[in-house]
Amino acid sequence: MGVCFDCLVVVNGVPDIRACQRVVEPGDTIRFQWGAELPAAQPQKREAAGADHPGADHPGGERPDPAGPDPARPEPHARPPRSDEQSGGSRSAEGEAW
């Protein structure tokens, strides 16, 4: 488990998180990830590390409310789910990579 990257979800606006590895925390907003996504410009919740994390700006266990979709996200990047993408199935974009 943890090696196939087929179960990716978006947690607090951050895509590319393996559902099979991530432990849910109270207040997390989680949704399925359909295909490639850009992370929201700002963290939508205090992210990751504990209060000692240099980027943590919400001291003492306070958590900001999970924000809605970030208005700063550029519109051209929104992409509807592809009909051939299955939950837990492949998430690759069209075409080739190297």
């Binding site: 951050v14 991530r22 963290p43 590390a49 504990g50 994390h53």
Partner: peptide, 11 residues
Amino acid sequence: QQGPADAPGRR
């Protein structure tokens, strides 16, 4: 990196 799996900003 230490912290919740795949999260940005981990220790």
